[in-house]
Design a protein around this nucleic acid. Structure first.
Length: 296
DNA sequence: AAAACCGGCAACCGCGAGCCA
DNA sequence: CTGGCTCGCGGTTGCCGGTTT
């Protein structure tokens, strides 16, 4: 441990010193702040403080909007855990914000999975549905998030949207789903062309190349063209208690790009209100009522 | 009312890349 | 080439306030 290095929460005076330094020299030479004796903080710490808290136009203390959440989910599927990169698509958000948002979401999903596999007292009174059967139900919640604006009855599940790949990684039961599902969500959000991508690319960034799927996933890609491809790897009868959503290519054909973003038309007749009864109680605790996308 | 639990957030740590002498 | 330095990124930890039991 180095001598005289301050750690922990920043004081207002320290912030002020840091801001003055940035005013004078710009957001650089972080290590000189300490060498000049201005602050007993490492350059690293100063930079972090600036980037995460002091930078202008930050949306500090402002919850992720539905649009931001959706963007993060899409970008995470495309880029993986490249938080800094993802943050460049979200004005006013830092990589730390995105990272924290994602990890909270992960925990929430884990909790949801656990809840659905070990029903609570109240849930025990209901008809028990095996986890395996729940999966398409959870998938359906992903779809409804893309159906925003298409159906007033489809809940915009926002932060509770299920990331299939993450679900599978966290799934306590190895037999929960077949491995071929792993890239399913990623494929779902792949636009047909880059021009249809609902993501505003920063001018400094080049459009991303198409996703490259590893050989083991080429199979599922090829089979997407097969109208009889069983996307969830379970028999039709197993889906009956679930969302009743059409899956596989016939469903994917409902993708609608007319609204500027990729959306999925959800037929109200297949998303009855009772559809959500089997969701954990907190599943939709962050639902916002169709906020208008900022600046889109 | 108090303890336990949980989620969100700020900050730290380790590592790698880039630059330069 | 290489070693030191700085910066940036992603993962992790710890604190704190709110909620639940």
């Amino acid at each position: 441990m180095e001598e005289g290095i301050r750690k922990g929460p920043w004081k207002a005076e320290e912030d002020e010193v840091l801001l003055n330094h940035v005013k004078k020299y710009g957001p650089r030479d972080w290590s000189s702040i300490r060498s000049k004796g201005l602050l007993q903080r490492t350059g690293k710490s100063c930079r972090l403080r600036w980037v995460n808290k002091l930078r202008p136009n930050l949306k500090n203390g402002c919850k992720f909007s539905l649009e931001e959440e959706r963007l993060v989910i899409e970008l995470q599927a495309e880029f993986g855990n490249k938080w800094a990169r993802i943050a460049t698509y979200l004005p006013g958000r830092t990589d730390n914000d995105v990272k924290n948002f994602w990890s909270s979401r992960q925990k929430r999903l884990a909790r949801i999975l656990q809840t659905s596999s070990t029903p609570s007292k109240s849930q025990k009174n209901k008809q028990q549905v095996p986890v395996y059967h729940d999966l398409p139900t959870l998938e359906a919640s992903v779809f409804t998030s893309y159906a925003e604006g298409e159906s007033s009855r489809a809940p915009s599940c926002s932060s509770s949207c299920i990331d299939t790949s993450e679900m599978i990684k966290m799934a306590p039961l190895p037999e929960l789903v077949e491995p071929k599902l792993i890239t399913f969500e990623s494929q779902l959000i792949q636009p047909e062309t880059e021009s249809q991508l609902p993501i505003p690319f920063p001018p400094t960034l080049q459009p991303q190349p198409d996703l490259i799927f590893p050989p083991e996933n080429q199979d599922i890609l090829a089979r997407l063209d097969d109208p009889y491809f069983d996307m969830f790897g379970c028999q039709e009868s197993k889906l009956e208690s679930a969302a009743q959503l059409p899956v596989g290519p016939p469903f994917l054909e409902q993708l609608d790009n007319s609204g500027g973003g990729v959306t999925v038309k959800i037929d109200d007749s297949i998303t009855p209100d009772c559809f959500f009864d089997d969701f954990p109680a907190d599943m939709f605790d962050h639902i916002d009522l169709f906020p208008s996308p900022p600046g889109l």
